[in-house]
Write a protein that binds this DNA or RNA. Structure first.
Lengths: 202, 202
DNA sequence: ATTGTACACTTAACAGTGTTAAGTTGCGTG
DNA sequence: CACGCAACTTAACACTGTTAAGTGTACAAT
């Protein structure tokens, strides 16, 4: 952990420049619609330079996804700390998750919907990534509800995944099926979360 | 609606051959990983021939998605007719939906997850497609539950979309996050549907 | 101060993509 | 038989991700 040389600092700086450009383009136009050449153009380097900092295009995507996970995890951590009632914390956490997706649809797609698995690293495991942190916070919220005997269910893992699935379902449908005549978004979110919570109450 | 000439029949036959080849490849390897040239090779025609029958690659995808919707709609129609209890019908319908996705993951991805919207026909509306039929069956099942006063909610549309979102959430998570340590699939499906139903009961 | 070399970066190329314009073939009708 | 139309193919364009080879320059050692 010694002091970084100038070279090392410059390397990291350019890496960040590339990441910034890629993130902006991916979020604006979607992963598939952005070419390495476009990213290179934006940062005024040759396309191959990117390959000196990232293995390939998918690695770029992964780096950006990790950031997204981290942001989401931080947000959910704050919510859990601020909330008083465990059930309220759970609901707020789920709401934050959905709203995060709706606010950053392309980012959400990148991370949770289109997430293509790397052919070179096929065993990349989400459970070893920052994504697990966000999941962990949801899990903790569920655990608190169960411990305080607010729910009749006892399988923390299953309940957590149920809430995640519900949140993800709403988010991804709203994002990808733009033209479908959905009812009011907030109504849908609240009704789903409230119904699940009601169904779990003793 | 006169008798079809031989030419017309031949045209339709080749169209079907193309569709069959494309479906098989798409389902096996995913939309993005199949090229027009590969499809052409499989049917032993030149790549450009396909363009005499379909506008572009996405049109091929759409044609296949419509088939998927039709199959799913048929299945849900049968379930609804066979079931005796409206709540049981709703649960069975949702289960069929999820199982359909798990059994044909690439097909499900094509239709409900990656469904890219056509740049040339940006206003392609899912609500005008066969997909609406499948949705209609789900809606009818919910309507029956509400009419027979099994649920305290009255917004048919919202409740339908809630079940759809839950089913879609489970399905797409299970399909796309293969490496995540999910609990038993059937447990997750049943728990989610049962919890929603319990939460809706009077 | 000069050399050697490691590193950052670029150029050129490969093999592939979706798609189109222009050409070729062969069948059915006048 | 000759014409025209339709089916189909060949060749090409403009792109894609990615790699091998080449260029130049800043720094360390002599």
């Amino acid at each position: 952990m010694g002091p970084k040389t100038r070279r090392e600092r410059e390397r990291e700086a350019l890496r960040e420049v590339i990441l910034d450009a890629a993130r902006e383009l991916f979020v604006e136009e979607g992963f598939e619609n952005v070419s390495m050449r476009r990213i290179a153009e934006k940062i005024e380097y040759s396309p191959t330079t990117i390959y000196l900092y990232f293995e390939d295009k998918l690695s770029l995507l992964y780096a950006i996804c990790e950031e997204t996970f981290a942001k989401l995890a931080k947000r959910m951590e704050i919510i859990r700390k601020e909330a008083d009632h465990p059930v309220a914390a759970l609901k707020k956490g789920c709401r934050a998750y959905v709203e995060f997706g709706l606010k950053h649809p392309n980012h959400y797609k990148l991370t949770f919907i289109n997430h293509p698995h790397h052919p070179k690293d096929p065993d990349w495991k989400m459970e070893e990534s920052l994504g697990m942190q966000a999941y962990g916070h949801l899990r903790a919220a569920v655990e608190a509800c169960i411990e305080q005997k607010m729910f009749h269910a006892t399988d923390v893992e299953a309940v957590t995944q149920m809430f995640w699935a519900a949140g993800h379902g709403i988010t991804s449908l709203l994002i990808t099926m733009e033209h479908f005549p959905f009812v009011n978004k907030n109504l849908l979110i609240d009704m789903t979360l409230d119904t699940l919570i009601d169904g779990l109450k003793k």
